[in-house]
Design a protein around this nucleic acid. Structure first.
Lengths: 347, 347
DNA sequence: ATGAAAGCGCTAACAA
DNA sequence: TTGTTAGCGCTTTCAT
């Protein structure tokens, strides 16, 4: 099958070390360089990254664990991250854990066995995904969309609270007082933050802070639809709604569609995340956007930095509490795309 | 760092072969089994898949090459395929090549170096993605959404022609005669097939077969929007339009939205692929759907079958023309989801 | 700059 | 059933 370095060595009459040196950018006499290149060409030699990985203990592979691949927000991040990582020679192993904590743990373990050099994780819920061992082994982990106090790893976050608060303020500014919110799961970090932002803005403005104006939607399409229906039933006088992720935005729009509610005449809407969907909606939706490409780049850059730059020294003594200090947290700003789904009230 | 088999051997006083046998499901005396399990537990031993891969020459890793990860159709397939593969112990390395033929080649090469055991490819265009060498090495390749005559690998297809023809027939049945189509790129297999189906149905029914009723849209949102505009301008009397993939459906809907065209009163629409989008549209879109889960399962099953079952014997003599016969082609049926975007004409 | 040799962690023959 | 040993393809001292 594939030719090996030995074959190249035989063919050129050189030693293994010379070939290896050539392959890794070392100095090789001009004459030999040519000989080697010829041999590689003729024998169709390709470095066996597996063998290299065994020897160097670095697989040049990054594991990515996500709740759902089939979700534009995550898919965009991964597309970008994979691109950057591959351009640095890193392969990407993706594990979709379908928003399930057990699968998440399995995935981390799976990737552990595969000896990935680092991990990008977008944790599903509250439970410990089990990558402590990973970190203890000195391998870098970057978390997206979640902060863990007791684990020392880098985090890439978005200003979720600010984004929600900003969206609500836009509604308030146009005269809305009875604003509903479709919130995410109680145990998800981003959902909590977004809800916080909502509450803060409502309270500050002295608008209606009735808890009945808040419905949980579980971050799914079905959840968004159900929450929309509930909000509509419980709050006949609600004039606007803020939906806090993309899937629920789709679900809510379906429900609005089904209920025959006209946007924005009867109900103003601010959604989340997907520009294309927003632009294709009738009327165009106003939405909060997240900087997916930046998130991906930040995650990939930090990971590569840790891997190739100055790694935080592996602490021999595991009970060293200082290890924590080394982790970084990047917080990115969200955006807003204006549509035609918000009505200005006369009142 | 991680414990190795040697450590387990020392700890238990057993030989390497016994440990290996245990790990691979071989027979081990009860006593020893327990000893081994204890040692594994205490030492936190985990098999090093890299070393195993080097030895067995099987990495238990599948490469997936796709045009766009950030695309629901592909994302759904990958989610499912990854799930199945992982449940069989295979890791998945994904390469997004952004619909670029050069990147596609790079990706295949990249995965080749990584010594993946097999490949799932959804080829971008016409050019040879360069996986011939792969096949020649006896490694299985499954192609999705494309057939190549001169390469012997398995293909998973969908009845694209039938799907398009069926969609058009629905329009014809409701009285439409001037039906536009937003077609995909000329060099993409699925696009060609869908266009064929459209033409066939139109011709059979004796409806208007004016070429001006066909606009190319490049399978992108922007392309779909531009094509929609063009169709609208060139065919003031067009009463229906069939859009042949998801991204273009979104784009077309945006444009329809911008142009202020009312669906279905002024224009009937049949789109493609994304049920959620269709249900969230106003009015609900009628669409052709593809069995993504089945596609993924077929691809994964065939691949695993080749890998674990009776591999087609590696032909010692490469010029054996008979190798071809062994490849399978699976063709799956599409579905249709009825919305409210098609108007029945009185005429 | 180059060669010889050891060894990464595992599997697989072969022996016992 | 279990132990011994060689070796997968590479990198990496250590000599030269």
């Amino acid at each position: 099958m594939g030719a090996t370095m030995k074959d190249i060595a035989k063919r050129t009459g050189l030693g293994l070390a010379t070939i290896s040196s050539y392959l890794n950018g070392g100095n090789v006499r001009e004459k030999n360089r040519i000989k080697i290149e010829e041999a590689i060409e003729e024998l169709h030699f390709e470095v066996n990254e597996v063998a290299r990985g065994l020897k160097t203990n670095r697989t040049k592979t990054i594991g990515i664990v996500i709740p759902e691949l089939n979700n534009i927000f995550f898919a965009e991040i991964i597309t970008e991250a994979e691109d950057i990582l591959r351009s640095h020679g890193y392969a990407t192993m993706i594990c979709d854990c379908r928003s399930d904590a057990d699968r998440e743990k399995e995935a981390v373990e799976f990737l552990c066995h595969r000896r990935v050099d680092g991990l990008i994780v977008m944790p599903t819920g509250r439970s410990d995904p089990g990558f402590r061992r990973f970190i203890r082994a000195g391998k870098p982990v970057v978390m997206i969309d979640r902060k863990m106090q007791d684990v020392s790893c880098d985090s890439i976050l978005v200003d979720n609270k600010g984004a929600a608060s900003d969206a609500v303020k836009r509604l308030l500014k146009t005269g809305h007082r009875k604003i509903g919110m479709i919130a995410g799961p109680e145990d998800v970090y981003t959902a909590k933050e977004r809800l916080k932002g909502f509450r803060e803005a409502v309270r500050e403005a002295g608008a209606d802070a009735d808890e009945a104006l808040i419905a949980r939607g579980n971050y799914t399409i079905a959840g968004g639809a159900a929450a929309m229906r509930k909000l509509h039933e419980q709050n006949p006088d609600m004039t606007a709604v803020f939906i806090s992720n993309y899937e629920m935005t789709v679900g809510a729009m379906m429900e609005i569609n089904d209920l025959g509610i006209r946007v924005p005449d009867e109900l103003s809407v601010i959604g989340f995340d997907n520009v294309d969907f927003a632009r294709a909606s009738v009327p165009k939706l106003s939405i909060v956007t997240q900087p997916t490409a930046k998130i991906a780049r930040a995650a990939a850059d930090i990971l590569i930095g840790r891997l190739e730059g100055k790694l935080p020294e592996e602490h021999e003594n595991e009970d060293d509490a200082d290890g924590q200090k080394l982790s970084a947290t990047v917080t990115l700003k969200t955006g807003f795309v204006e549509g035609r789904s918000v009505r200005t009230l006369k009142a």
